[in-house]
């Protein structure tokens, strides 16, 4: 009973997600990272750290020439609008865009603004940027204070409002949450932390990063014995299937580069099986429970056997040396002591 319930819930989740995210694996992913003004050395440092982590994580999931980073004097409204106009021309209909806004925001009761040098980016600018990108399935995360104020412009009024064309995350519930936020640094940290990888597929999805960051923010305020001054929001469908980072990307690249013919064949076989499992989970509601479980178990067993063979082959080949060593300059994880 317990098993069937859990399976059903999980499968429905996937169905909902896949319905709006067709053929993700074939789409190119373009990532734009914008670091806004810190205002104080403490925040400057935090924002630089978050940007660097996101840049590194982005390079694990897409080609380096599809990752664009803006900070300091380069992050002006004019430069950003120009960048997104050009990006729109470059992208195909099936491509996706991920946009990170790291910084402070403000809200005067009417207009939300993301703080950058010169004129700020407004909620209307953000809406225009998203709407002018070709296709759908885009993502924007805004980690700034008051960022919840942009939601109404982007997805409409109400807690359940969403736009089918994109997934949006704000660090705050609305424009009244004005304190500098903690969400951004934890969201960035999620992109390289295996604790965030709840489905153990070595990819960090939007949903996983959001869940991780939301939990860490809650723990942060609990430890400080303070009421939480921010409540992150996620709007839109497809967050579970939109990956933002790959955890063992360098090992995978190295493995493929040095793999024997047999190992390549095994890796391909495992990938095929994973696709079949995913497909089966999506079609869960069309099958009776016994059929589903029998097929699921069969595929999982095959996948497990292939994984075992892969590990044996890897062992025979000796340890894999990552093609890219971890960047020692990357910031350490956030958080201080273990003792509250």
């Amino acid at each position: 009973m317990k098993l069937s319930l859990i399976l059903r819930r999980s499968a429905l989740h996937l169905v909902a997600a896949l319905a709006v995210v067709p053929a993700l694996s074939q789409a190119a992913l373009y990532i734009s990272i914008v670091q806004g003004l810190g205002g104080q050395p403490l925040y400057d440092e935090q924002f630089v750290d978050a940007r660097k982590i996101i840049e590194a994580a982005s390079n694990t999931i897409t080609d380096a020439d599809k990752v664009f980073s803006f900070s300091g004097e380069r992050a002006t409204r004019a430069a950003l609008l120009k960048h997104f106009t050009e990006l729109g021309k470059k992208m195909a209909t099936g491509d996706r865009a991920a946009i990170y806004l790291i910084g402070h925001g403000s809200f005067d009761g009417e207009t939300y603004k993301f703080n950058i040098p010169g004129p700020d980016l407004t909620a209307q600018d953000l809406k225009s940027i998203l709407e002018h990108l070709p296709g759908r399935n885009h993502f924007l995360v805004n980690t700034s204070s008051t960022s919840g104020a942009m939601l109404e412009t982007l997805v409409g009024k109400g807690d359940k409002a969403s736009n089918p064309a994109f997934v949006v995350i704000s660090a705050t519930r609305n424009g009244n949450e004005r304190n500098a936020t903690q969400f951004g640094r934890y969201f960035a940290e999620a992109l390289r932390n295996k604790d965030a990888d709840l489905n153990k597929n070595n990819n960090i999805s939007i949903q996983e990063a959001f869940d991780y960051a939301e939990k860490q923010v809650s723990t942060h305020f609990q430890d400080e014995s303070k009421l939480s001054t921010e409540h992150a929001q996620l709007r839109g469908d497809g967050a579970t299937l939109f990956n933002l980072a790959r955890l063992n990307a360098s090992e995978q690249k190295a493995e493929l580069a040095s793999a024997s013919g047999k190992l390549v064949e095994l890796l391909k076989k495992r990938k095929d099986l994973e696709a079949q499992i995913e497909d089966l989970q999506v079609r869960r509601s069309q099958l009776n429970n016994a059929d589903y479980l029998a097929r699921f178990q069969q595929l999982i067993l095959q996948s497990a056997e292939v994984s075992e063979q892969i590990e044996a082959a890897q062992k025979a080949n000796g340890p894999i040396k990552p093609m890219i060593e971890a960047d020692p300059a990357l910031p350490k994880p956030p958080g201080g002591t273990r003792v509250p």
């Binding site: 317990k2 999980s10 489905n199 994973e274 995913e278 989970q281 699921f296 178990q297």
Partner: peptide, 22 residues
Amino acid sequence: MQYVMTALDVAPQYRPAQSLLL
């Protein structure tokens, strides 16, 4: 079996669970 299958339904590529199933 019941719990390992539930684990794998959430995370089909979870190696420790795959090994236990095998």
